[in-house]
Nucleic acid binder design. Structure first.
Length: 423
RNA sequence: AGAAAGGUGGCCGAGUGGCUUAAGGCGCACGCCUGGAAAGCGUGUAUACGGCAACGUAUCGAGGGUUCGAAUCCCUUCCUUUCUGCCA
């Protein structure tokens, strides 16, 4: 959520930046600023009325104490009108504030200067590419066929016990999953991130804090009897640990990592693009979250990109980095880099990580502030990224490491797996 | 699920209708003291909104009510803790 004061101070620049998302914000900004003026004026009137009420009450108290009940009773009559008008003003103020709030919720974050204009994924800008795409032997397969051939994943079994999009990992497939989780967590903690295990169900306030609610309600599984949501990403519980917090400047940055399953309803397309591990309702992910001083957040974003790059480099998977264009940028993000690994057998790129700087957009919703050296409070910047999402990494490993003898295990994973080939 | 006790500032914690303008402590900041530090002493220190400012207003989990006046009384609701029950 943007701050009204920022909109006021940077109106033209913000309007221009939002055109990169294909949004003309001129009208909504005008509405916001008008509503805010209205709010201020109403608040001032209300404050004056209440101030008078308070001073009359004090007088009445004093009169009673000095035994002058008669005069006190005269004054009491005066409070009736004051009370009425303060009630009226306060309900006006409530509805104005609510209107303002609703307007603010509809406005996405302001894209950073680096964000390319453009509305579709074709406009994303490739900033980096590394790793050779292997030339596969005759008879090479997509990962879902490999998973079946080597008995690593049973998709039908998942359908039986739950439904489509809930695979069962088995044997060396399950072990490889566990190896990846441990490896990712180790890389993250080695880089200084503190490891957390967090709840997989969150309350409504948490959904609001990170921006999944109210807009994307349909994308989360909802447990009705207890009014809780299954997390779509560890970002939600991890970032919400700091909701309503006021931290000291010296405590920044706060860096966290955590492994969680993620649950996404994603009612949408079917077909080849969602086959196998490409899109699931439940998948595993290791996430990194940073709470940063605003002056340092973009440096931190670059650091996160470098960190994920190093992991993919160690896994020796062919990957590229995209700077998302305005149209592809998430609602809450100011700048996002997507990592994609090449699926050789499918001949296409698969998104495996998304690293974003939300600036103060989430912090404003979360009320996550820090106290600086002068004792002033301001919103911290929040960032997060996957390091990494498991299924597509697994798909990439299966497809890119397949040989006629079997699937080789990337060197860095061998100690975690306890085997070096799946055959 | 049943019973009981609670929810107060960055944190702990006192506070049963007006002198609460929220005590006291911890923490933090600054100063004194010190070779330097600790301790000690002194001063300051909640948040939000409005205002150039003085200042005003709101906020004691949330929402409603009683009252001229509510942290305090009443109602509703959420959450936490303890005990009982169930359970890995």
């Amino acid at each position: 959520m943007l701050q009204v004061q920022d909109i006021r101070d940077n109106k033209d620049r913000y309007i221009k930046a939002l055109t990169k998302r294909g949004i003309d914000a001129a009208e909504v900004f005008k509405k916001v600023l008008d509503a805010d003026e209205n709010r201020k004026a109403t608040q001032t009137k209300l404050d004056e009325t209440l101030a008078e009420s308070n001073s009359v009450s004090k007088e009445i108290g004093d009169l009673y104490k000095s035994g002058n009940a008669k005069e006190a009773n005269v004054l009491k009559e005066k409070t009736v009108a004051l009370k009425e008008s303060s009630k009226e003003l306060s309900s006006q103020l409530d509805s104005i504030s609510e209107e303002l709030q609703k307007l603010l919720w509809t406005i996405p974050n302001i894209p950073n200067d680096l964000v390319p204009a453009g509305l579709t994924e074709d406009d994303n800008e490739e900033t980096f590419r590394e790793g050779d795409i292997p030339v596969l032997a005759e008879g090479s397969m997509p990962h879902w066929e490999l998973a079946k051939k080597y008995d690593l994943i049973d998709f039908e079994l998942g359908v039986k016990i739950t439904g489509a999009g809930f695979p069962v990992y088995k044997g060396k497939g399950a072990r490889l999953q566990r190896a990846l989780i441990s490896y990712f967590l180790d890389k993250n903690t080695d880089a200084g991130y503190t490891e957390y295990q967090v709840p997989l169900l969150v309350n409504e306030a948490s959904g609001f804090g990170t921006g999944q609610l109210p807009d994307k309600e349909g994308q989360m599984y909802h447990v009705g009897v207890d009014d809780l949501y299954l997390i779509p990403t560890a970002e939600v519980p991890v970032t919400n640990m700091f909701r309503n917090d006021l931290v000291q400047e010296a405590d920044l940055p706060i860096t966290c990592t955590g492994f969680t399953p993620c649950f996404r309803r994603e009612a949408g397309s079917y077909g080849a693009h969602v086959r196998g591990l490409n899109r699931l309702h439940q998948f595993d992910k290791v996430e990194i979250v940073r709470i940063e001083h605003p002056d340092n957040s973009y440096k931190a974003l670059d650091g996160m990109v470098d960190h994920v790059t190093e992991i993919l480099r160690e896994l020796k998977l062919p990957f590229r980095i995209l700077r998302l264009c305005g149209g592809d940028l998430g609602f809450t993000s100011a700048l996002t880099y997507d990592f994609e690994v090449f699926s050789t057998a499918q001949d296409r790129w698969l998104e495996i990580s998304s690293v974003s700087n939300f600036e103060a957009f989430q912090a404003n919703r979360l009320k996550l502030r820090f106290k600086n050296a002068d004792g002033k409070n301001s919103f911290a910047h929040t960032l997060n990224g996957s390091s990494l999402a498991l299924p597509r990494v697994l798909a990439g490993i299966l497809e890119n490491y397949q040989t006629p003898e079997g699937i080789k295990i990337p060197d860095v994973l061998v100690p975690y797996c306890g085997f070096d080939i799946i055959s």
